[in-house]
Amino acid sequence: MTTFTDPARLGISGKAINTCLEQGRAAFIGYLPVGYPDVSASLEAFKTLSECADLVEIGMPYSDPFLDGTVIQQATTRALMRGVRTRDAFRAAETVATCGKTPVVMTYWNLIEQYGPDSFARDLAAAGGAGVITPDLTPDEADEWIAATDAHGLDRIFLIAPSSTPERIAMTMAACRGWVYATSVMGVTGVRTTTSIAAPVIAGRAREIDPTLPVGIGLGIGNGDQAAEVASYADAAIVGSALVRCLPPEPVDIASGLAAMATLAAELADGVHRGRSQQLA
């Protein structure tokens, strides 16, 4: 794990990851959907998560979440039933930024397309957002989005996968600013009992092809040991479903959910800290 030097490549969120690397550890990126169990309870959850995570990923609920496993599907379906709107992501970004952590939004593309890519970039930047992860938008279809994020100084994080060719990894990383999101398995979001053997491979391929950009690894991480393992070779470890699972379906039960999530978040943060020393040892 090295540190990165080109500020134009790192943007805001890559710089935050680099700060962790300079401290001798990987970054911990935690995901929660805005609006679950409802909007105000989710803002409390973002505050709690911000105590442990370095970057906070704000998921926007979508009616057709074809990349999400059951845990996130069920949470985002409930969020939509309770009336979450696209603009609530900006409130969540403001909440995370106020806590001094780096907010990035993760969303299916149509929600940005309907808000208007330029308006979305403008309003997220104004709320203190650092960037956006777009799982169903690859650089091939992203001309308008690249212009919008450039205009408003937002990072854009595209995904690479174990099935990506070297050419596509190079093309995708060149289009990113901040970092690149490497999916560790072929599959949807959700906790897995063992970390993927493909994860260090895709991280290594990405680093070899483009050493100027941090690599975050996501999909399947559920506990401190798995986070430590991923943190030993990646620049950032991303955890979603395991955190979401801590939260209750009903807003009235939020207090106990927040406590459970805080415990897990602390374990994951500890894992990320251990990851690097394991590597040194």
Binding site: L67, T138, L159, P162, S163, R168
Partner: peptide, 10 residues
């Protein structure tokens, strides 16, 4: 167009 995750591109 092709609005899919990178994993399906190949």
């Amino acid at each position: 167009g092709t609005f899919v995750p990178e994993a399906l591109r190949a």
